[in-house]
Design a protein around this nucleic acid. Sequence first.
RNA 1: UGAGCUAUGGUGUAACGGUAGCACAACAGAUUCUGAAUCUGUUUGUCUUGGUUCGAAUCCAGGUAGCUCAACCA
Length: 558
Amino acid sequence: MQIPEASNFIQEIIVNDLTTGKRTEVHTRFPPEPNGYLHIGHAKSICLNFGTALKFGGKTNLRFDDTNPTKEDVEYVDSIREDVHWLGFDWEDREYYASDYYEQTYEFAEKLIQLGKAYVCELQGDDVSTYRGTLTEAGKPSPWRDRPIEENLDLFRRMRAGEFEEGRYFLRAKIDMAHPNMNMRDPAMYRIKKATHHRTGDKWCIYPMYDFAHPLGDWIEGITHSICTLEFEAHRPLYDWFLIALGLDNRPQQIEFARLNLTYTMMSKRRLLELVQNKVVMGWSDPRMPTVSGLRRRGYSPSSIREFADRIGISKADSMVDINLLYFCIREELNASAQRAMAVLDPIKVVIDNWQDGREDMIEVENNPENPAQGSRRISFGKEIYIDAEDFMENPPKKYFRLHPEGEVRLKGAYFIKCVNVLKDAAGKITEVHCTYDPASRGGESPDGRKVKGTIQWVSVAHAVDAEVRLFDNLFTLENPAAVPEGQNWMDFVNPNSLVKKQAKLEPMLGEATLADRYQFMRLGYFCLDSEDSKPGNLVFNRTVELKDSWGKSQAKV
RNA sequence: UGAGCUAUGGUGUAACGGUAGCACAACAGAUUCUGAAUCUGUUUGUCUUGGUUCGAAUCCAGGUAGCUCAACCA
């Protein structure tokens, strides 16, 4: 196989390994802990691990890192499986669990004891950290550090047998209590936990720590490149130490990259959980959540997320990606593919005075100007239509070229209309706009060639479909919600306008929408049915992303 | 005088000792039956100080700034 060209520093390592013959294949793994839902940061890692293996003709395992039974649950296993598949990746039959290796992991631990490289410690609570020292001072050896091998073995076996209470003993690697890297100061390998594990049940009452289980899992599976995030960098010497101490050949190589940060987005699993528990959002799959399930419900496609992951690149520098790039990726895709439709979010009624009562016209409109192959559709037009309140102004600013008194505007695909009168209620609120239409402008062109700058969407009153339309905005008002100013609470930066519900009027076709459909509501944005709340007769549409709006932006400035 | 890592336009990322490029964002114009899309153009960058070299974003040294590490979490 021709070795592809590297496009980031991890691929450079791989290309180098392949060309020097250090490796003959690439085998990665995605190792989530099943203690929460996957978010877009995980999606970056999934795309990295699966994408890299794919590029080099290798494989990727899905491995659940389930070494802490008190935090993990099958609910999360199921959602993770679904999300990885949905993103478009396949681990075939290679679905593994750290718990699959508990027996082997245990044997490796005994071996380390026999080699005099691990011991059973009985330091309690604060004493453990006291003995460990601080960042600037060396630690001191545990009193149990030189326990005889036979005694260690006996104790460790009895730990497994369940003879001791939690915390009474724990197994530690015997490395160096004065090591400048705190992770090397005799780290814990096994602890007693009398908890029921979601897969192994009550078979075990001792569980391995991540630092011990992870390199072993990688080695057992034949992983070549073990890709993880930056915070594990200081753990790499330990990762290597275990494999070397056990004399294991063909060691996997741990490589770290910077995790994703997104503007206006909370990425902390713990805080996302708080949002769910405090009912700040509707749940893990709330379309405002950065979870994979939230993005899915919002209307993002797997390919748009892969495209995003591709564009942000991979490096070791901490960074903050502009959320506009995510928006760009989904707009770019939907612009090319989405069916166009007309919808009115804040309806005001327009009555066409010179239109014959009861007369109806069928108007032909293209389904997607970006792709003529998608054809066209016919829509009923009549004397009464809805337009958006935003598309009419009694006293318009300069350069406003939507409907206004004396002004002429084109109704998409239909006719030119001109405003002749405005009706209001006692409170001064506009109730009806009366217009006249130009019969010669049918289809949206006038034979006299006069230009009409504004084109607006419309919905026939007689045929309108009612629906709830949900408009989403960033969940946080702070660009970096992870860095809240001194003395303030991150919850105070939840955007109160992150969800706005509209009672909208839609063109008839949208009444037949299915979950798989993606629409561009013309001049508004991209929308899809809400997978959880939309029901026949009670439609709910979600706005995936709005269209760019240079007019709105210029108006916001004045 | 703890250790490790990182530093390129507003943002993200290339350039591997030889012309600082791409994308997003922003701005301007053209175009438009979506104030979208499209097209054209513009603004803005190698953290700093030295050194090596004909030549440094790249190599070396010192600074500075940021991130990570003292769970029987992952």
